[in-house]
Design a protein around this nucleic acid. Structure first.
Lengths: 207, 207
DNA sequence: TAGATTGTTAATCGATTAACAATC
DNA sequence: TAGATTGTTAATCGATTAACAATC
């Protein structure tokens, strides 16, 4: 096995590099050094080179990186050349706010389906997406080639929903419900517990 | 200086311990061991003892921890015995969803003010909070003893808002705008970039 | 060639895990 | 006393940082 798994921090930073380098490329700046990239993102030059080094060597000694080429390489590595279909499960306040949030599109993220268990909500249209019954979950996820799901249900339903999502073939879950989801190892879950983030801030406020 | 700064991971876990131990205490269970706490949260017993050890010794050798006492100690350490007033700046879709989100209250987090720059929104009432002009920011934050701010403005305004917040005496910021805020070292910023979290998931989806 | 900057190996740092003496 | 479990010191692990030879 040549799997020397890339740290998650590296992946997160690579997206930042891509954004920065692409911006420069579009501005007509042809090359940039690792230390300049680092300066713009408050990171060290070594950090930048190390992160890139996980995926190959993209630079030229003495000259730096070609912004256009590096952008293209990173886009490929990070899957930014593809479109990603997302579904949202649980169309309450947070769920509908996310449906209406327009910031995703520019990142190649498309909300392709929305599900709810409440019959009163089913059939309603939000941002040109019709809310479907949760019974459609599996069928719709497969038909629409959805690979990422956002869970914005109440805590009590989150695990059940997660189970259905896994069965439907979802690979990644962004979970807003404040519960630790039990899923197979190969499913990637990112928890976004807003209350918990605020709690941690209160600790710093109280010193 | 006896400052052996506590890792942020420890703080995060302490909130989880508190929730768990308090639940048990309310169920009438008097004592619990570090390994039982760990089992419930998928952590090792050592992790639990180490984390608690940052703030003192709360257990009894051979017996474990008194759930009632440990709850009380943790509540004090974490500032959970206090109420925290929060303001939201930028009452767009995400901002108003957060205003309406009812999940914060049970954690002692109170949304006490909301600000927006758009005259059309000022004066409107959401969840019994009147949206104020951003010109009121400083005055209102001081009067209402607000110590945490949530930024849900467009990216372009986020830094300006952050500057005003810092000037107004805010200690912590939860930032949803996808920009790195420039603030003094003693201000704690927690970035919640939803697109970025999804991006990272897409990487795992593409393997 | 001289200067700049890369890619990589070695050193450092911090956090997690293991080991164990102390103690109820 | 024997068993259980704590609190803490030492070992391990992974990620960040420093050092530097290779190279354009």
């Amino acid at each position: 096995m040549n799997k020397k798994k890339t740290p998650e921090g590296t992946i997160s930073r690579l997206f930042a590099y891509l954004r920065e380098v692409k911006k420069l490329s579009e501005l007509g700046i042809k090359t940039i050094s690792s230390s300049e990239i680092g300066d713009r993102l408050n990171l060290s030059d070594v950090q930048v080179r190390k992160d890139l080094g996980c995926f190959g060597s993209f630079g030229i000694s003495g000259a730096g990186y070609d912004t256009g080429e590096l952008s293209k390489s990173l886009e490929k590595i990070l899957g930014k050349d593809k479109q990603w279909n997302i579904c949202i499960v649980g169309i309450g306040r947070l769920g509908s706010a996310l449906m209406m949030y327009s910031g995703f599109k520019k990142d190649g993220l498309y909300i392709a389906a929305a599900f709810d268990a409440n019959p009163k909500k089913i059939g309603k249209v939000v941002e040109s997406i019709e809310i479907e019954s949760i019974d459609n979950l599996s069928k719709s996820i497969q038909e629409k080639k959805i690979s990422i799901a956002i869970i914005t249900t109440p805590s009590e339903q989150a695990q059940t929903v997660a189970d259905s999502l896994v069965k439907a073939g979802i690979e990644c879950i962004m979970n807003f419900a404040p519960v630790r989801l039990n899923v197979p190892d190969d499913i990637k879950v990112e928890n976004v517990d807003l209350s918990h983030v605020l709690e941690i801030l209160t600790y710093f406020a109280s010193n």
